[in-house]
Design a protein around this nucleic acid. Structure first.
Lengths: 204, 204, 204, 204
DNA sequence: CATGAATGAGTGTTCATTCAT
DNA sequence: TATGAATGAACACTCATTCAT
């Protein structure tokens, strides 16, 4: 009763994230959550009125967490860094990559549910997606003004960068046997290289 | 019984795609499928042994369809085109964009289910993802060899391009009110521009 | 498949009335209703959204039925009869007695639930109790005007008469072994006698 | 710990009577009893083995209480009074009226449960109903013998009187907005008048 | 071949009861 | 003795599936 003092509510949340992420919300039985959490099934309902409430609690907390970790912190890193832009970009992508990879289960849950549940989708768009894009656009815009970046539509640039990282992660998660994307550092620096200099050969 | 000659099986499939895509597989009741298809609930089970069989049939057919439309046809377009590379790239992305957008419901269904159902994920990876990547890589590789593209890892380039289009579509589908991504032609040509020439300003 | 053609809904209603009346609404399990009705438990919910809906359906239908049988018909009997008042009164009480006794199960259900459920109580008061009292009062009032009845408050008279019949029935239902109230004809004519002439001895 | 010295057991009993009477036994949760009693839910089970035991304790105590208050005391009042019969009757009815009204919650609980629980019904019949009727019958019988009352079946007379009071109380409790039964003194003296002299007009 | 009423296994949820503190 | 978190048996209700017509 010292540390390890993981509360019953946390046990439920953790078991739920794991199961929802593996099998989806609907296919996860409350009896399984209970078993995985090491508690009685009835106990779940002392903490959450319904099974759906577990999901909503996970989503709400996660979105809150991400809207801080994802947005405020990287913002400062980016805006106050003295490094050259290429490095800043690489740092940003790596940071994002790690954040998503580390929280992949929960992100998978939220992402999946967002596809069919408008309420979740709206929360996600409002608190995470739009803010993330806006900060990225601001960063790019200021780069244009400093003469570092070309005058291209910031939204498109940011969205494409983000898509490139997302696909890297998807590839690693969903075809885990593939060798081609194992070296993350290299992948990310390649992505930065592609975006900075393009793929067109400039002979001579 | 001439045209309009949509078979009962097709009615079931179409209704299912629509509903699965809106509400997800588990939340869709067979009674709803029947109502949407304009048939009796029992009739469904003359064509499909179980509800899951409807899903598997949709997935199998779609994957078959996509593995042709997605892979074989663009392959030829790309490999036998006389256009300059920038245009080929733009054509490819536009083609992919349209294919995905037009079949968005069914892709959403397959994508969602692939997240939690290994069998579907494997089919998708094997028949669509890998092939698509391979053809893209081949295209890029031959571009390198022709001296058109820089010598960067093809997989990373192709994956990033694909991620850029996917994110464009996601943005349009999930925040439909946003003005920034409405003009598809322009978006795609911007993406091509980014990938061809990079975002770094080259003053001097 | 000729007569006997008691519908599934009726089977459910009948089984429910019997069980609710015996054990009360809360103590009756839907599994018992199903067994008593000779159907599967799930079938209940094709006809009634919830267990409570069964109760409400019983109550609503019964109140509708009673507000007709109880009020409109006796009204006509009473108002258009040529018999002397004592006989009219005896007929009325007997009629009421039989109605209640014949429908005792359902009346017990409604009465019990009315004690704790405001909605049911209100319906009962509005559609049955008030109307019944009003018609009784009207009958008594016209008797006063014809010089047949003494000028006493009609409500009190009617209520007391009704209470006398109710208690007779209660006694028969709840202490069924008691001999004193077995002869209904005699009981009712005694009640009429009490109300017509009072209990005070008028010697000489 | 002087006055106010209401024991935990009493707190439970009082809270239970209030809630059982409002919502019925089955619909009352032990958690609500605890909240209403200002104690912890677990504490209930130090005083009562089961929830049903609370009910049985209420019923047993109440029946004990009533069988004294209801029977022994009025008995003496009636048998040793020097007042004229009309006044004795009025006193009796008023006394009963007040007893029931003052204890209405508990009587409602017992009455409701008696409808579905044979054990409670039997206790009620044996310890209260029969005794009450017997004493009433005895009183009436002696009135007959004294030449004060007409020779009518005592059981019927007593039962009807009781029914008249019960209906008066029911009317007041269940349609509280009605004006016609507000003046209790007058209602009871009208009931006495009806029973003593009948409702038949005796012109001339 | 189509129907839709009936089925019943399976699930989320409730709540009286227990027990370690 | 009092507490309230945890329990799990019991229950209402859902819905894919069956089958007599």
């Amino acid at each position: 009763m010292k540390k390890d003092d993981i509360s019953t509510e946390e046990k439920i949340i953790n078991a739920s994230i794991e199961l929802f992420s593996e099998k989806g919300f609907d296919s996860t039985k409350t009896s399984e959550i209970a078993k995985n959490a090491g508690i009685a099934e009835g106990t779940i309902f002392r903490y959450f009125k319904t099974k759906k409430d577990i999901l909503m609690s996970i989503v709400t907390k996660a979105i809150q967490f991400f809207s801080e970790k994802f947005i405020v912190l990287p913002l400062n890193k980016v805006l106050h860094s003295e490094k050259p832009e290429e490095e800043i970009l690489a740092d940003l992508l790596k940071d994002r990559y790690e954040m998503i990879t580390k929280n992949f289960s929960i992100i998978k849950v939220i992402g999946t549910e967002a596809l069919t549940k408008e309420k979740i989708r709206e929360k996600l768009v409002e608190h995470v997606a739009i803010k993330t894009l806006e900060i990225g656009e601001e960063f790019y815009q200021s780069g244009i003004e400093k003469g570092i970046f070309r005058d291209l539509p910031p939204r498109t640039v940011v969205r494409s960068l983000f898509g490139s990282v997302i696909m890297l992660i998807a590839e690693q998660q969903f075809f885990p046997d593939d060798k081609k994307s194992k070296d993350v550092e290299k992948e990310i620096s390649t992505i930065v290289e592609i975006f900075m200099n393009g793929i067109k050969s400039r002979k001579e």
